[in-house]
Structure formats: structure tokens, C-alpha cells
């Protein structure tokens, strides 16, 4: 693997069977994403964007091809190794936030730290800091149902960054948000990339969201297309 490359895919394929039909989700994808990149993957529904994100996160496995993430060949890892690797290296932001409804914002953000050796006071302190970074230092004890959609997504981002991962994967992070909230979330992701050096891979079908990324590529029917969109960072 080349130095400075965060993610390297070579001839990556993903097939699965749905109701007796074979579906090719990703077809021969070859792609490098540099460390510190804000990379946007666009495409229509069913194009394979989320599948690609799942493979990078190690929550699904490729059918063929090679996939290196941060120098590790994650296709060869056991489920347990993958879980540990993911908790240390990947932060994941879902479209539907996926916060645990019975936990407060603070507890939701602290959750990934339960997999570390940190003591509870340290975990809580880190979770507070993460929430302050996303501007929710005053919403620590709020339950998800007491937050707006934009706030929930910011909690989800705090949860993704609390373990200080090198890569943050965001799957349609603005898909459920109004324009103002979407802008807030995208600004936070931009800050994390620009000021904290996080490599960010964002999947979206919203061209306005894509403008926040430095590089964009288009995926259609599982195949990668060339595409360049103007970036707000240019």
C-alpha cells in the first residue's frame, strides 16, 4: 500500500442473492482514497453506495477483490478482530441517526468508549468534549426524543468521533434533515476533516451536500464513474 492512502480497493466486487435473484451490488471497483480526504460518493438509490461504505467499515465482506483500509487487509480479519478494528479506526454516521432511545445524548456518545479501557469519569469527559465539538454541550442529558433531527445527527457525529477514529463514514447524513440542519451537519464534517485531519467518506445523492466534499465520484449500477463537482472548499 502506498503511503498516504487511507483506503485502497482493487477489483472489488460484491454480489448477493435476494429472493433467488443474484444482485451485483459492486462491480470491479478500483479506487484509492487519500488520508485526510473528504470524499463524496454519489449515485441513485440502489447504485451500491451504502454497500461500498459497509465494506469499508468492515460490516460486510466483499465477494472478490482486495480492500485495504489504513494498511489493514480487513477481508482477512475474523469477526472479532473486525469489531475491535472498527471500534478503534472507524466512526459511522447513519442516515437515520440510530441513537439508542433509552440513553441520553451523553450516554449515547459514551457508548463506544465502553469498549476501551478508559474509566467511567474519563469516558464521560471525552463524551462531553465530543458533544461540545458538535455544539451540544448544553444537551448532555437530553434523550434522543427530546432533540431535533439536526441535533440527533450531531449527537451521532459526536458518537462517531469520540473514539478519535482516523476515518468517519457518513451514510446519507443529511437525508433526514432540513436544509439548515443539513448545512450544520455538513459544516461539522468539514471542520472535522479540515481541522482534525479526519478522512471522511460521505455517501449522498444530494448534490448540495456533495459540494462540501473535496472529491466526488459517482456510482451507478455498481460501477464507478468519473465525476467532478465544485467543492465549497475550493
Amino acid at each position: 500500500m502506498n503511503s498516504g492512502i487511507a483506503i485502497s480497493m482493487r477489483n472489488l466486487c460484491k454480489e448477493y442473492t435476494r429472493e433467488e435473484f443474484k444482485v451485483v451490488a459492486l462491480d470491479d471497483i478500483t479506487l484509492d482514497i487519500a488520508e485526510g480526504e473528504f470524499f463524496c460518493l454519489m449515485g441513485p438509490s440502489g447504485s451500491g453506495k451504502s454497500t461500498l461504505l459497509h465494506l469499508v467499515a468492515g460490516i460486510d465482506r466483499p465477494t472478490s477483490g482486495s480492500l485495504g483500509v489504513l494498511g489493514a487487509d480487513i477481508a482477512d480479519m475474523t469477526d472479532r478482530e473486525l469489531a475491535r478494528w472498527r471500534s478503534e479506526n472507524i466512526g459511522y454516521v447513519f442516515q437515520t441517526f440510530n441513537l439508542i432511545p433509552v440513553l441520553t445524548a451523553w450516554e449515547n456518545v459514551e457508548l463506544p468508549l465502553q469498549l476501551t479501557h478508559l474509566k467511567r469519569p474519563d469516558r464521560l469527559e471525552r463524551a462531553r468534549t465530543a458533544l461540545e465539538i458538535v455544539g451540544l454541550g448544553d444537551r448532555l442529558d437530553h434523550l434522543p426524543k427530546q432533540l431535533s433531527g439536526g441535533q440527533e445527527q450531531r449527537v451521532a457525529i459526536a458518537r462517531a468521533l469520540v473514539t478519535d477514529p482516523a476515518i468517519i463514514l457518513a451514510d446519507e447524513p443529511t437525508g433526514e434533515l432540513d436544509a439548515a440542519s443539513a448545512n450544520e451537519v455538513l459544516s461539522i464534517l468539514t471542520t472535522l476533516n479540515r481541522d482534525h485531519g479526519k478522512t471522511i467518506i460521505m455517501v449522498t445523492h444530494d448534490p448540495r451536500a456533495a459540494r462540501f466534499a473535496r472529491t466526488s465520484r459517482y456510482l451507478d449500477k455498481g460501477r464507478m464513474m468519473e465525476m467532478q463537482t465544485p467543492s465549497v472548499m475550493d
Binding site: 472479532r80 469489531a83 475491535r84 472498527r86 471500534s87 459511522y92
Partner: peptide, 16 residues
């Protein structure tokens, strides 16, 4: 079920 998927995505192993 969905929350279990989220926990695993966060890195919780199957044993946990």
C-alpha cells in the same frame, strides 16, 4: 434488531 446492528457497527463484538 436494528439497535443490535448499531452496537455491532460501533464495535461491540457478538459475545458482548
Amino acid at each position: 434488531t436494528r439497535e443490535i446492528g448499531v452496537l455491532k457497527t460501533l464495535g461491540f463484538p457478538s459475545g458482548s
